[in-house]
Structures are given as C-alpha cells and as structure tokens.
Amino acid sequence: MKTLFDKVYTRKEWTFIKIPFFLFWISLLQHILDKGYHASLSKGLCQLVDCQFFIATDNKILILSIAWLLGVLYIAEIKMKWTTFILFVMSMMVYSAEESSGVLSRSGMFSFIFLSQSIAYWIYSFDIELQRLWKNRIQFSMQAIAVAYFLSACSKLIDSGLSWPSDGHRITLQIVKSFNYNWVTNLNGEELDKAAYFVKLINQNQFTLFVLLSISWLLEFFIPLAIVQRGYARIYGIALLGMHIGIFYFMDIVIISFVVPMIIIFINPLYCIMTLLDKPTKRINSIFKISR
C-alpha cells in the first residue's frame, strides 16, 4: 500500500499508463472515423492544413493502420521521441478536424500528453539517466493534465470572479439544458423527469451546492500541489474523480477526454490493482518456497 503513495516512479507504472492510454486514444479515434464527420468550419490547425483527410471515412483503414503501427512502436518503446511526437501531431490533426466539424470534445490536454511524453524522451537523449526518464515521462504527463484543470479554475475566476460558487443557483438552467439534450435525442420522457428531480433537489440544498462548488474550484486551482509528488497525485486524482462523479450524477455530463486520462495517469487503477495483488502473491510464494 505504501508504494502506491510514495514518490517513486517505476517502469511498471509506466507500462500500466501507456497501454490503457493508447487503447483509449485509438478507441476515440475509431469513434471519430466511424462518425463520418465533415470538417466544414476550419478551426485551429485546419485553417492551415486540409484536415478532412484525417477524418474522412474513405481513409479510415489507412489512418487506423498508421495509428496501430504507432501504437505498437509506443508500447514496445521503439524510437520513442519520434513515436510520441508523431502521435501528438496525429492527435492534433484528428481532434482539430473533429472540432472543425462542430464537436467540442475539449481534447487539447489529451493530445498535449503525447507532446509532454515526447519532451521527456528528448531530454533523455541528452541526459542519459534512466531514473530521470522513468520519472519525467509520467510526471510530465501529470503536468499536462494539471495545467488543464488549473486553467479551467482560472477561467472561472476570469469569467465569474469569486462569485462563481454563489452564482451556482443558476446551475439549474444548465441541468435542464443537459437533460433536454438527451430528450431531444431519444424522446425518452424519463430525461425530463430527471431534470425536474435534480432542479428541485438543488433548489432545496443551495448551501450544500455552494460548498460543493467551492470545493471543486479549490481542487482545480490547487492542482499544481498534486504534481509535486507521485503519491499526492494519486490522492488528488481520487478527489477529482469524486468531483467528476458528482458532475455526472447531477448534470449528466462527462468530458471523457478529461476524465479518462486523469484516471489513467493520476490514479492508474490497473497499477494499483497489480501492486496490491503482487504483494500477497509474493508473500504466498515465499512461504511456499520455505515450506518446500
């Protein structure tokens, strides 16, 4: 248990980050390609390059083949400074194209994680200290996540000032909107019932809402503390997960390109499970050896 909350960055932990991270990235890529979007609005990079190529259904097999090839190189740790950099460029192209088609998936941080990992490998090519690479490739990824939450907190300060939590009573309009989005999509009357239920609940618990919003803002604003040490990030990640569960419960909103990388990199549940399972297994093995 102690190893999960200390400041050590291990190779094993990196393995349990990169595999789920890549699989998640490619599943989103597949989803975008399946949707058959059309980059009609030219946002970001698409103002300079014809991004349609990257999301055109006709190019699906080609794009997925390239992505899988990069994935194999990424997981097998081959030419990492270039592999991660090309993954960053590809991710940027695909998500810019998706945004140009009118979808705001807020996936900037998601692409930037590949760049942060690339920076770690580029530093390694100048400073060949393996322990530092082990730390940097995870810690830099944590920084990419932390800055997104931090800027989100700054946005609240810029757009609403310190009154953001106390303005929260108007969140009911956002809740009604959110469940109505579902209703106009599937015409399931339950969505409107849910909206009415949550609006009533929030109107009856204004002070609790104020406290919860204040906590979530503080969590976002002080996230730089989480990246100082590995163990802090895991505890912080659990608190952020709680915040996201709350947002999902009340507002039916999950920003997947935010939440999933945070879980994989901050908490790293697979690594936690393996570490917790590893110790008893080792203990049993050692007992078995002694008794033999």
Binding site: S107, M109, S152, R170, L173
Partner: peptide
C-alpha cells in the same frame, strides 16, 4: 483557443440563459 491549447472555459460562469435545439 486553438487545439491543443485552451483555457477550458466550460461552465466557467452560470449565466441566466441556456439553449436547446431540436
């Protein structure tokens, strides 16, 4: 606000309006 950069302004304010389209 150009991918991958953003200040992630979602729900940075709670204005007195919201829209739904159908």
């Amino acid at each position: 606000e150009s991918h991958p950069f953003s200040r992630y302004p979602m729900y940075s304010s709670f204005p007195n309006w919201s829209y739904v389209f159908y």
